[in-house]
Simulated scan of single mutants.
Amino acid sequence: MRLRQSILGLRASWRKFVALFLVGVGLSVTVASCAGGNQTAGGGANGGGNVELTLVSYAVTRAAYEKIIPQFTQQWQQEHNQNVTFNQSYGGSGSQARAVIDGLEADVVALALALDTERIEEAGLIQSGWETEAPNNAIVHKSVAALVTRDGNPKNVQNWADLARDDVSVITANPKTSGGARWNFLALWGSVTQTGGNDDQALELTRNVYQNAPVLPRDAREATDVFFKQGQGDVLINYENEMILAGLNNQNLPYVVPEVNISIDNPIAVVDTNVDKHGTREVAEAFVEFLFTPEAQREFARVGFRPVDPTVAEEVAQQYPQIDTLFTAQDMGGWDQIQQRFFDDGAIFDQIQAGIRR
């Protein structure tokens, strides 16, 4: 990529990545009626007939579920003599949570962050304690944050502190409107507080980084568009799994995974009100359990997610850069405290924005 021809090739690769990303984020597939009028009630183990499940997830998981769902349906049919078909909907995690609250009758939700799942719980559709009803506290796969740079990393960006330099322009979505962007904010803040720094130092770093953000797009899709299509910014805060998936599609983009990082934990949950309405609890819970098997975990790993199954994690360890300090949302107080402290109206993020000179 040192010659002009190589640079042109990288630009074409960026364009392909943007197209892939936009298709993934915007996709919403409904294979059959979400109401499932012809499903076999109960999803019973001895039933025969057909059962329909509706899976609602966020965009970049689609490639994994395309491989996992046929494995599960084949196993269920062999063990229970019953056909399972899936309605699938993919889109931005926050938008998907809103859709379920507004009436999309998901049996299972697999979203980007627990806060989105908790919103569905608050709407009365998921019973409290859902985190304990699946293995690994219902975290089905993980990722970490990545810093996407321009070709050759001309600003030599290696870590979070580099994003606060005067000569670096940063593209990230607005954490007030983007659930995924909240991971970005927490990664910045935690890179200080989880390595011995105090809140004042974390505030200074985070404020300086957002000072370097010329715009705050509404969501990750718009942020990616601003960086790739509009050419703004030196660095885009994105996610390791998306960069790995882009590489698997021959779109090798330059990126750095900081050695101090946040574990981007992605939860799974059964939507209790809907499975009881549809009579699909048994098969929905079995599907969730299947996602934690080595077979399913390998499919998540193949598209860039960090698996939670220890055996599979060891198998694919060389696929991922080593993280020296890995912290979690729980280490920062859990999502209820995080939301109140950082993202509610008048909280720390709003205070940072109020003091930024544009």
Rank of each mutant, 00 (worst) to 15 (best):
R306H: 09
F343I: 09
F349P: 09
A106H: 10
A202R: 02
N198K: 10
L186P: 09
A106D: 09
H278A: 13
Q127W: 03
L188F: 13
Q211T: 03
Q75G: 08
G196A: 07
G26E: 13
A59E: 07
R358C: 09
V84S: 14
T206R: 03
A12M: 00
E315V: 11
W160A: 02
D199A: 09
V29C: 05
D200W: 00
E315P: 13
S263N: 06
T54N: 10
A145E: 15
I262P: 06
T117Y: 06
K229V: 13
T117F: 07
T54V: 13
A181I: 08
I323N: 12
I237Q: 01
I139P: 07
V56D: 05
Q158F: 04
Q297H: 14
T325E: 14
G42C: 06
P258K: 08
E242G: 08
P217V: 05
K277D: 08
N174P: 02
L27C: 11
E131H: 06
L115G: 05
D345K: 13
A63Q: 04
L8H: 10
T280E: 08
G196P: 09
I338F: 01
T193C: 05
L53I: 11
R302H: 13
V215H: 14
E240R: 13
A112G: 15
A64Q: 13
T311G: 14
R357Q: 11
G279K: 07
V283A: 10
V100D: 07
N159C: 14
Y255S: 03
G48P: 07
V170K: 00
P214Y: 01
V270G: 12
A173P: 03
N174E: 01
Q88Y: 02
V271W: 11
E105C: 05
I69M: 04
P214C: 03
E105V: 03
A146N: 11
T206V: 06
G94L: 10
F292C: 05
